[in-house]
Design a protein around this nucleic acid. Structure first.
Lengths: 234, 234
DNA sequence: CGCTCGGTTGATGCACATCAAAGGCTGTGG
DNA sequence: CCACAGCCTTTGATGTGCATCAACCGAGCG
């Protein structure tokens, strides 16, 4: 567990992400000083809302859901983080920051846990890096705003919007596929609905051939139809 | 209209905002090169969703609502900007950016319109400035996340949360007051509800003495009660 | 083998939206 | 100066999308 980042070949791995494009190995190594790779199993908590934020994270592999606890014990899912995402960077500059949300693994995942002072002393000094992180933030912000704009839309529109957004990140081949194992309950927690309602919608769409939901993977079969359900937004 | 910023005494005005704390007049003048003060009347559009974003804005005075057009012609209010806020800074670094939302004046207001290249060439070079802007962003992000976490809560909770948030920014004396002229319709558009529902809630609260709504000003009389209505969140 | 977890389906109820109608207030033009 | 239009507010009557409750099934798993 306490092997150095370099030994593990993580540097090479990092070089493959857009965030570190153009950086040399020694630079990357400096950025990740004192960092460690954390491996988490399904449903394991990476960090917890309310804790002091002494680190931030870079997702290497798998996926994490970021949740906020609500009144009745139910959690709301704020966001899904995929490989290449930076988590909690925005709050690093605050004095004595605390995580506003929890991060929970979806399936086996790996993340790089980086000390806060690295951000303050090293990351912050690289204008390129700061600028790229702002780009990620911009995307996240746009997504939240888009969701807020859909509050008055019927539930179908919200689900459609979510599926399109998640699938978009991985514009692989023809059939857009969602690269994370997503249960109905997680969709429900994300759009603010009940499991049963989501099931009714998804079953309906599957019957109509809009989507297909093999074991742990959701595939969008008729993108045009799904986009139409969003209410010609986007 | 084409008077220089300096002549108008804007520099002095800017020095009063936390964002420019510690900056000298010549520096501020450089930051605001080629900028102009825009004065807008009630309901006038400062910028429009979809337009190319050749500038960003700094709110001097009054208030702006940031809205996103929705399907039926109805607009959703994403955010309220008060004096000291920076608008659209986040999208400046993007290649060929466009405004994702519209900015509309609430009552007579003034904003400083600053060219995009100022941000790219000058603002971006001041680590302090970038860091403070990230602080503003962090607040906005937290607000959006908070709202998302409330989707499953009853309407009352959403309205309460909105009032508390808006009042918090101006922690003047004892009675928290909302410093912007806010109609029921605007509250409705912000929390994603109908005007009628908002009216019923506000009338009820006024009757119970939780809030008072003199002409164009909303005052929270019993903060504790209102916070309680949020469902012990926050 | 019993357990938990994800999925599914139908019946019932409620919190809101929607519709309808009306009064006050402001500005605007004849 | 009055009439008219537009905006904001209010109240009541009616409708509905979705939550909630309850029950059941299949699959993985210790």
């Amino acid at each position: 567990m306490k092997k150095s980042i370099r030994e593990l070949g993580v540097i090479t791995e990092l070089r493959g992400f857009a965030l570190f494009n153009g950086f040399e190995d020694p630079e990357i190594e400096e950025l990740c000083n004192d960092s460690q790779v954390v491996v988490t199993n399904h449903k394991k908590e990476l960090f917890k809302a309310g804790e002091k934020a002494l680190n931030f994270f870079f997702v290497l592999n798998g996926a994490y859901k970021l949740t906020k606890p609500a009144m009745n014990g139910e959690d709301t899912i704020i966001n899904f983080s995929s490989p290449g995402d930076v988590i909690a960077a925005l709050i690093m500059p605050l004095p004595d920051p605390a995580f506003p949300i929890s991060g929970i693994s979806m399936g086996p995942s790996r993340a790089l846990k980086i000390p806060r002072y690295n951000y303050l002393n090293i990351w912050n000094r690289h204008p390129d890096l700061v600028s790229r992180i702002q780009g990620l933030l911009s995307t996240r912000m746009a997504s939240l705003q888009q969701q807020k704009a859909l509050t008055k839309s019927p539930l179908q529109a919200k689900v459609a919007s979510l599926l399109i957004e998640l699938a978009d990140r991985q514009p692989s081949s023809e059939q857009p596929t969602i690269p994370i194992p997503l249960t109905r309950k997680e969709i429900a927690d994300s759009v603010g609905a009940s499991v049963e309602s989501i099931i009714r919608i998804m079953s309906d769409w599957a019957k109509k051939g809009y989507v297909s939901t093999n074991e742990k993977q959701i595939t969008i079969l008729q993108t045009a139809k799904v986009i139409e359900l969003m209410g010609s937004e986007f």
